[in-house]
């Protein structure tokens, strides 16, 4: 089954008003899964949202999205990886550059404000990715952040998607996070 069908089939069952999904993906299918997920939320379901990238720079993500006909005008980007201004945060027309993936406080504040500024009731928050966040932060900090995020996603009433690479994230973190999510899915590599 191709990734597009897998995404549709798995996410189609969820209530998009307030659902949390943990997506585990193998490195080979990471890019494809990422785009298909955003396509499903933004193009198929017409949801505006917040895309938090800890993995690829905003410019790259935006280019890939536009190539895939995703409406980037309805997405707020938070880029925690591009080092544009050293340690200082900088905001452009549609992206906030935090510049430090270890600034979890900044990331939390930014996500809270970005989600609340979205004008619709149905919206999504996409975190790309938990495994990369684990590289830049201690396991304890990421664990605490993941708990904060899942609890807040419920409060904000968003469709929350947390993506993580299989095998690169501590199993204990995945197990704990899976408890708080409505669904934990393995996508790509033929596993569903």
């Amino acid at each position: 089954m191709d990734i597009h069908k897998q995404v549709k089939q798995k996410l189609g069952k969820l209530n998009l008003d307030n659902a949390l999904v943990l997506i585990l993906v193998d490195s080979k299918h990471y890019n494809e899964v990422n785009i298909e997920l955003i396509k499903y939320l933004n193009v198929d379901k017409h949801l505006p949202g917040v895309y938090v990238t800890v993995n690829k720079p905003y410019a790259t993500i935006k280019r890939i999205m536009e190539q895939n006909k995703i409406n980037t005008k309805t997405i707020i980007f938070i880029d925690a990886i591009s080092k544009l201004t050293g340690d200082k945060s900088k905001k452009t027309a549609d992206c906030l550059f935090i510049g430090m993936p270890n600034d979890l406080t900044g990331l939390s504040v930014a996500m809270n404000e970005a989600v609340k500024s979205l004008p619709t009731k149905k919206k999504f928050l996409f975190l790309d990715s938990l495994s990369t966040l684990s590289i830049h932060n201690s396991a304890g900090s990421v664990n605490q952040f993941a708990h904060f995020l899942t609890a807040n996603m419920r409060e904000w009433g968003v469709m929350g998607v947390i993506i993580s690479l299989e095998r690169e994230t501590e199993q204990s973190l995945i197990d704990q996070l899976a408890q708080f999510c409505d669904l934990s899915i393995e996508l790509g590599g033929g596993k569903t």
Partner: peptide, 17 residues
């Protein structure tokens, strides 16, 4: 507030939608 305030972006999204 200038860095972490997203209200202007929210308004643009509302317009786009």
């Amino acid at each position: 507030s200038e860095t972490y305030g997203f209200k202007d972006m929210g308004e643009k999204i509302a317009e786009s939608l």
